[in-house]
């Protein structure tokens, strides 16, 4: 059982509780949450504002600490790690796509993509790099600076950056939140491809049922708890469930 867990689970959170503030100002962002994220799956986390979905993502990704409970990436428990070990773990095993400000303005698109590898001073797997670039469709924009790219292109570069080091898991926080529908569609298509064709694992936080429709599984959050789950969802099914949950 344990061995299969390690093989198939890319990340998990166990009895995770996160409390901000104290006394009357206390906010329970996560309330005893336990979720697993399988390898090779595209999972969406949904929920209304304040449901704790971003907090969940940050805690699993090692950007924030739980008040109590445990989170794992692979079989590494994050709570016990110091800043340096956490940083190295993020560098080696985690990819990120944020809603905004994903790229370093002084670096070209290609430099931004290889940034995690360059920071780690690791060699670039050229075949993999080429494959990622082809999938993303940015072959001709590699030497451009971020300011010379459209919003959609910027997010695709960010996605490519998340992929290039072949992390165990990629966390995306509202990646299409700032994009028009066409660009959003392109980005999400690419993310889905990364999972189906390239075998990557993605966990995405979104409040957009359309975006969540690209995923294999949707986890619904409300008031810091897991309140439901949908497998192989359609946008409509997600939309209905959201309405049920009052989101």
């Amino acid at each position: 059982m344990t061995s299969t867990l390690q093989e198939t689970v890319a990340a998990r959170i166990f009895n995770g509780t996160k409390i901000y503030g104290e006394g009357h100002a206390e906010v329970r962002a996560l309330d005893d949450v336990s979720v697993e994220f399988q390898k090779g799956r595209f999972t969406a986390i949904m929920g209304p504002s304040g449901s704790g979905k971003s907090t969940l993502l940050h805690c699993i990704a090692g950007l924030d600490e739980l008040t109590s409970g445990e989170t794992f990436i692979g079989d590494v428990e994050l709570g016990s790690l110091k800043d340096r070990a956490l940083t190295l773990l993020r560098r080696e095993k985690v990819g990120f796509i944020f809603q905004a400000y994903n790229l370093i303005p002084t670096l070209s698109a290609s430099e931004n993509i290889t940034l995690p590898l360059d920071i780690a001073r690791e060699d670039i797997d050229q075949d993999w790099f080429d494959q990622v670039i082809t999938t993303i469709g940015l072959e001709n924009r590699l030497s451009h600076l971020p300011t010379e790219l459209s919003g959609g292109e910027q997010q695709r570069v960010a996605a490519a950056r998340a992929l290039v080091s072949r992390p165990e898991i990629i966390f995306a926080d509202e990646p299409s939140g700032n994009l028009d529908s066409t660009s959003a569609g392109e980005l999400l298509d690419f993310m889905k491809q990364a999972v189906t064709d390239l075998g990557q694992t993605i966990v995405m936080v979104t409040h957009d049922p359309g975006a969540a429709g690209y995923s294999d599984r949707v986890v619904f959050l409300g008031d810091g708890r897991v309140v439901g789950e949908l497998l192989e969802p359609t946008s409509d099914a997600i939309f209905d469930r959201m309405r049920e949950l009052g989101g």
């Binding site: 800043d83 944020f98 920071i119």
Partner: peptide
């Protein structure tokens, strides 16, 4: 600040 945060997120150590 944001840029530094991003760099830290994608694996830049404090020392770097």
């Amino acid at each position: 600040k944001r840029e530094l945060g991003l760099l830290r997120a994608v694996g830049m150590t404090r020392r770097q």
